[in-house]
Amino acid sequence: MRVILALLASLAALLPSGGSWSQTSPSAAPGDSAAAISRLLSSTFEKPDSRLLLDPIVVEGKAALVGWLQGDLAGRAFLRENDGHWAIVACGGDALKDVSTLQRLGLSQAQADRLSAAMAAAEARIDPQRVARFATFGELVEMSGEAHTPANPQRH
Rank of each mutant, 00 (worst) to 15 (best):
T24K: 08
L8V: 06
Q103N: 06
A135W: 00
G61C: 14
G75A: 05
K62P: 04
L105D: 12
I4E: 03
A124W: 05
R104T: 15
R155F: 07
G18L: 07
S10F: 15
V3E: 02
L102R: 03
P150S: 13
V89A: 03
L54C: 12
A122P: 01
H148Q: 11
A64K: 03
E123P: 10
L7Q: 10
E46R: 14
M1N: 04
Q103G: 05
D55K: 08
S100K: 12
A12V: 13
G93N: 03
K47Q: 14
L8W: 09
S17Q: 10
L107I: 08
L96P: 11
E60F: 10
A121H: 06
L15E: 12
P153F: 02
V131N: 00
K62V: 06
F134E: 06
D94C: 06
R80G: 05
R104Y: 09
T101S: 13
V89Q: 03
A12Q: 12
A110G: 04
R133A: 08
P48E: 13
R2K: 10
D72K: 02
I4Y: 08
L40P: 02
D94I: 04
G67M: 05
R155D: 11
W21H: 11
A13P: 07
Q154I: 03
S33A: 13
K47N: 11
I126M: 02
A117T: 14
L65Y: 09
L40V: 01
R2P: 00
F45K: 06
S116H: 07
R130I: 10
P150K: 11
T44H: 14
A121T: 07
G71L: 08
L40W: 04
S25K: 00
A117D: 15
L53Q: 12
W68N: 05
L96H: 04
G31H: 08
T44S: 15
I126Y: 06
L79V: 01
N82D: 13
I88Q: 09
D55R: 11
E146H: 05
W68Q: 03
G138H: 03
P16D: 09
S17H: 09
V66W: 05
T136N: 02
L140C: 11
R80Y: 02
D83K: 04
G92F: 04
P26S: 11
R39K: 10
A12T: 14
E139Y: 04
P30G: 02
S144I: 01
Q70G: 07
D32Q: 11
G92K: 00
S116E: 14
G67E: 10
D98K: 14
G93A: 09
A64Q: 08
S10C: 13
P150N: 15
S50L: 15
